[in-house]
Design a protein around this nucleic acid. Structure first.
Lengths: 234, 234
DNA sequence: AATATAAATTTGGTTAACCAATTTAAGTAT
DNA sequence: ATACTTAAATTGGTTAACCAAATTTATATT
């Protein structure tokens, strides 16, 4: 049997099936928004699978905010109405696995905004943390060592300074996949690391002086190679 | 005992503790990137909890792309290096629960980009689907009925037409929370629904004519009230 | 000694039984 | 009838035992 390759954050066939069945059951019972889902035992029995599998599927839907389990009480359906629930679950199940270009496109888009917010909202603590991370990055690069991790932490420290937990979370959720893809597709050339020091420094300076547009501009320059890769065919 | 309120997508204290312990163990064993995590049984025994709890925590980290479980083989650590893993887990654990403003800010930001992509990349099928959803929305509004769900599906159909699965996924993951918060804070006034029809139509027209900047502009107008709410204090 | 083969172990996934908090129903006194 | 008390049933969470595939180790064969 062939090994099933499941993309990051994707759903395997069994999960899709169970989620789809849960959707059908919600429709069948014509449940009101905010109502309780049938108990895990009942679902497991009804769908002919174990409770563990049901709990797994519920956790996936909890991530998308469609369900919420309350201990010793029940699992509640988001107060969205049947039509919305159906539409969302349909899209979730049929969501394609993000490809590399989607991820890069998303990252550039996210980070250009994050750095603007960071420049506008950063506290002194944020700035200290960013500078501290930058120093570690410089040290590694100047020592001729690999600094992929330090580069990553630099960008994450900016994301944190944006003071938008929602965007920060999105950034966190796509970062590892991008990093590993970078190495796979050999996008990131190590010989550009020396340039990157100056680019990073320019970004930090803009954040220090609370200049959002300059911060965005410098981040754009930092991403220029990546940007080119992403839109070379457009 | 007080009921523990766990925000959407948030981690409860037990999950945070287990994730933190896993991080410590990775550091203790000084594991190489890409290496296998100790087995679930060993982790459960080492941390004094059940395998189920371990599996739960692993699933959370899988969402962030830090771990990947392979059946009958093991759970592999993302190829990021120890420093990056530590930094990411630290941020994940200490990530604040997104507040309403963060969500609204994120939604506006995401949708302005999604609609641009949709206008640039939409297929005929995408357009048909968007128009179909719009018709249902119009019908509901003109009938004087509640059309929150149809409005939601309209925006999701645009997200789909963006042909960026990564952004689409992010949009899906923040949408339900926003909708429910809308109703909680009474942001969305039902009497503006008639205006919204024209606004939606203008967006669709721009998408039909493949005019990204006009699409973005029309979406911005559609979000004007929301935009004001979000940045009223800035 | 190198290689092929098979048995034993380890692994994540699954299932079933158990626990404590909650909810619901029944009972009882007022 | 109503309000309060209590007990039975339901619920999500937890634990332990089991399964099949993958890995490792041991063994036999050349």
């Amino acid at each position: 049997m062939k090994t099933e390759i499941k993309g990051v954050n994707g759903l395997d066939n069994k999960e899709k099936l169970i989620i789809s069945e849960i959707k059908s059951l919600i429709n069948l019972k014509n449940m009101e928004p905010g109502e309780k889902l049938p108990s895990e035992r009942l679902l497991a029995d009804r769908l002919g699978v174990s409770r563990g599998s049901i709990r797994n599927a519920i956790q996936k839907l909890e991530f998308y905010g469609l369900l919420k389990s309350m201990p010793q009480s029940g699992t509640f359906i988001a107060d969205l109405g049947l039509t919305a629930i159906n539409g969302m679950i349909h899209q979730i199940i049929n969501l394609p696995t993000p490809d590399f270009k989607s991820l890069v496109e998303t990252r550039i888009f996210l980070e250009l905004k994050l750095v603007k917010f960071a420049a506008a909202r950063r506290t002194e603590e944020d700035l200290s943390e960013i500078e501290e991370v930058l120093e570690k990055y410089k040290f590694k690069v100047l020592a001729g060592e690999d600094a992929v991790a330090e580069d990553l932490l630099f960008h994450l420290s900016i994301a944190k300074a944006s003071h938008n937990p929602s965007l920060n979370r999105l950034m966190l959720s796509i970062t590892p996949q991008i990093i590993t893809d970078f190495e796979k597709y050999h996008v990131c050339k190590s010989n550009t690391a020396l340039n990157a020091i100056d680019e990073h420094q320019a970004i930090v300076d803009a954040i220090r002086f609370k200049d959002p547009s300059r911060a965005e501009e410098k981040m754009k320059e930092h991403f220029s190679v990546l940007y080119q890769y992403c839109y070379e065919s457009n």
